[in-house]
Design a protein around this nucleic acid. Sequence first.
DNA 1: GTTAGCACTCAGGTGTTGAGAGTGCTAACA
DNA 2: TGTTAGCACTCTCAACACCTGAGTGCTAAC
Lengths: 364, 364
Amino acid sequence: MNPNDLNERKLQILQAIIADFITTGEPVGSRSLSKSHDMGISPATIRNEMSDLEDMGYLTHPHTSAGRVPSDKAYRLYVDELMDTSELPEEDKQKIRSKLLESRNELDSTIEHAAELLSDMTNLTSFVLMPRKDESKLKYINFLPVDSNTVVLMIVAEDGQVMNRAIRLSVPYTEENLQLMSKVMTHNYRGKSISAVMAMDIIDSFTNDMQSLSGLAQDVVPSFLKTLEKMLNADLVMNGYSNIFSLPEFSTDMQKTQNFLKMLEDKSKLTDVIVNRDKGVMITIGDENSEDMKDLSLITADYRVNGELVGRLGVIGPTRMKYGKVTSVIKYISDNISQTFELKENNDVKDDSNDDGSADEQDS
Amino acid sequence: MNPNDLNERKLQILQAIIADFITTGEPVGSRSLSKSHDMGISPATIRNEMSDLEDMGYLTHPHTSAGRVPSDKAYRLYVDELMDTSELPEEDKQKIRSKLLESRNELDSTIEHAAELLSDMTNLTSFVLMPRKDESKLKYINFLPVDSNTVVLMIVAEDGQVMNRAIRLSVPYTEENLQLMSKVMTHNYRGKSISAVMAMDIIDSFTNDMQSLSGLAQDVVPSFLKTLEKMLNADLVMNGYSNIFSLPEFSTDMQKTQNFLKMLEDKSKLTDVIVNRDKGVMITIGDENSEDMKDLSLITADYRVNGELVGRLGVIGPTRMKYGKVTSVIKYISDNISQTFELKENNDVKDDSNDDGSADEQDS
DNA sequence: GTTAGCACTCAGGTGTTGAGAGTGCTAACA
DNA sequence: TGTTAGCACTCTCAACACCTGAGTGCTAAC
């Protein structure tokens, strides 16, 4: 069953079938194949080879008198060995670069643009996992008064992540209490990782150490924990889910479309799947995925910020997708993000107070 | 054309037709109507009345030999005059109350739960507009160092809204510069409304007043403006878009489904529509909406926090929806949110002399 | 004014048929 | 022995006719 069982001609035929099926979505017959790809052999010969390929599990048959359709195994072989992984045309590269440059100063916008680019250029549903790091450490915790019974909890992590949440209090508070609370919590948790703090017995430490705050703590601590949890949970941005309608096999099969869209609606499940994938470019095809994605393919890649792996982006679509093109686009986009947010070594935080004369630069 | 043209019997027949059509989705015929609603007249009489109602624009005819279907005008009459607006059953009320209580200390979670409840209980697509206020005033602006070329901009408004964004700098910065920048911007914009600040000529004031910061300002100001814009833009949360598949008229008509989902995908347009609706409970039916929603109905209501109008929630679905039930659910949920976040008068802030000291909170 | 009766209409389901695209097998060929 | 032409067979799909059921509009009688 390993690819070496396949002679040169079988490979050539398989490749041609996959290429045809990817573009048309129709089962490929021996006669039409021999017409479209001139490989100097008759349809009868192709039929014999096809029959062998079917026995080996690379092709299937919707019904006796239909053409052949590639199996998941065939796509796997195609992706591993046969696929055309040529460079992206300069035009596409240009489009990606200019769109990402638009917002090169802001990671968040860049990420959103990346998702748009990805779905536009592949005509599939794209997703981007926003940068979240489990090990990121807390920097400070702050409470801001809003009105007489509402405060905003703000948590800032060392890596710049900021999360906030409005909390309604059932007991009165004073500004002094809030500031004390901020100080105590910052002091207790600063420099600790989010998961470490979540594992601590917070309520207990409060009621013991700070009697005066224990009333406040009752209201605040559950929200604090929920907010930490939210900081851990990766945030999934999706784009172009209605692209699915442009594919004939979906726009004629309501059930399939419905399953697809329902699957996308369960974001937390999808996030789980994406988070748990391998690093680098990863392609999973059909039944290599879990049950509810067993006739879909998933391609993901990572992007880095300052050399550190922070997020993941990719597409999801039918197994019949243009693997070569899609992979190139994903790779190019992720590399481009990583490059844009590359650490510039000569650009360090200076601790001295004098300004550096840059003021003159835009005086006109 | 006013409803007074309709005698009692016509109203009764119209109401019966609408009720039947809303539950079945099938055109209603005279014979089946006389069977299901015993109103003591024969199908022939009903036919005559139906014919009159059709002439008056309340009913239409998909084709000669089909039953009658209510027009948008009929739904309007139904909603205004005929609809059963009975109280929600205690069971449903209980369900809403307990779900909303789960997160009564946090507005954000409550809002999300409300959207879930709404789509679950109506089997439609629900949306909630997160609280955003155009007139909210800035409280302070803060920059946090992340790494040698990244800082986080954090904007806090008086109403507790916090927005942040990572900014990549092209010039080096010092901690002192950041703190100076925070102080200057906070001093300049504090107490001003977001829209007022956006209207100011920010770059100019920087280059004039603060030569030393102008290099930083080049990078920071565009992001600052974008972030303010984001604070103004209401954030739309949606839920249950795949509920549409449970309706026969959508699950058999791919084109309709596709239009619906594509319409939902353009969030900014939908947000615009929702923002610009009347206060209170508002129902718009079919062609009362804009072109791309002309065979849908939209029901919205507002919710308040501390007596102040802050957000809006609602559902979108086919004109054939259970207006009575849906309206009751929306009303009950919005009232419940408003009640939960009611101002408690006896619960005041004791001291609000100094609330921008938070900029130095970070190095405690 | 109401109703029964009747002719008429139309969508949708069923059955048939033929075309087209495909396969598998066999026998002949190089 | 691998390759190919030929042929019988299979299956989908679109077109077509046909029938049925639900509905309408009209008319005449109650």
